[in-house]
Amino acid sequence: MSLAKIPSRTDYVDEVYKTLLDAISAGKLAPGERITQEDLAERLNVSRSPVLQALRLLKKDGLLEEAPGRGLVVAKLNPVQIGHLYQVRGALDGLAARLASARHAKIPLSLIDAGREAAVGSDVKAMIEADTAFHKAIYEASGNPFIVDNAMLHWIHLRRVMGAVLQRSVGRDGIWDEHAAIVTAIHDGNGDLAAALSVQHTDVAREALVGNLQHSESELERMEA
């Protein structure tokens, strides 16, 4: 699978990191795939140094791991770990929605429109970016910078799960209707409802995504048996 070459600039590390993160999330670099510094440097048209630094960051984030006799490989998705991450996300989402409601924050409705447009297309990256932008807007609207910082740490992994599911299906129906309902509650200043809808949204998403991953694992085990 080809990767987009990075245009010339002074500092490549952030660009290499983001490019590889997008590739992992979209499945261009699949779970279990071996990763080498030399190959990526050639495919991205950059020197080895920024690739090495980006790989170290990705390993630290848990997206890459050491495999005996193979070096670095893309880490496999762990349904149990993902379930735990979604529990944390649900708590943060509920708190952010409640705080945003108390401030009568205005979430741009254009985010909903962009999400609906992405959902009817086939661009997995666009779907992930739209979902991320929506939730980040609520985190920022909470007025608590610690929510933003903590929540976005988890999205590194959550976007991988979303990407894995979206590669196999069109995603969960009604997701942007749920988003729209959360926004309405925030705009109305109804903190209890906004928080409840946010937690419910995350719980349903967790069950759907983890269930999809577990099903995929079972199918793979049957094929390898």
Rank of each mutant, 00 (worst) to 15 (best):
A4N: 07
A4R: 13
T10P: 10
Y12M: 14
V13E: 15
V13H: 10
Y17A: 07
K18W: 13
I24M: 14
A26T: 15
I35H: 07
E38P: 01
E38M: 11
R43K: 11
V51P: 00
L52P: 00
R56I: 03
R56L: 07
L57P: 01
K59Q: 14
K60D: 09
G62Y: 01
E65L: 01
E65P: 01
G71Y: 09
K76D: 11
L77A: 14
N78F: 05
Q81D: 08
I82M: 11
L85A: 08
Y86Q: 09
Y86L: 12
G90L: 13
A91L: 14
D93I: 02
L95M: 13
L99Y: 12
A100L: 04
A100Y: 10
A102Q: 14
I107F: 10
L111V: 04
G115K: 04
E117N: 12
S122A: 05
K125F: 03
M127I: 04
A130Q: 06
D131M: 01
H135Y: 02
H135R: 13
F146Q: 14
I147K: 04
V148S: 11
V148Q: 07
V148A: 06
A151T: 02
L153W: 05
I156C: 02
H157W: 13
L166D: 09
L166R: 04
L166H: 13
S169A: 09
G171A: 02
R172D: 10
H179A: 03
A180V: 05
A181W: 00
I182F: 03
V183E: 06
V183N: 02
T184H: 10
I186F: 00
D188N: 11
G189T: 14
G191E: 05
D192A: 14
A194T: 09
L197H: 03
S198Q: 04
S198G: 05
H201I: 00
D203H: 10
A205S: 15
R206G: 03
L209D: 15
N212S: 15
H215K: 10
S216I: 12
S218Y: 11
S218A: 15
E219R: 12
R222N: 08
R222P: 02
M223P: 01
E224D: 13
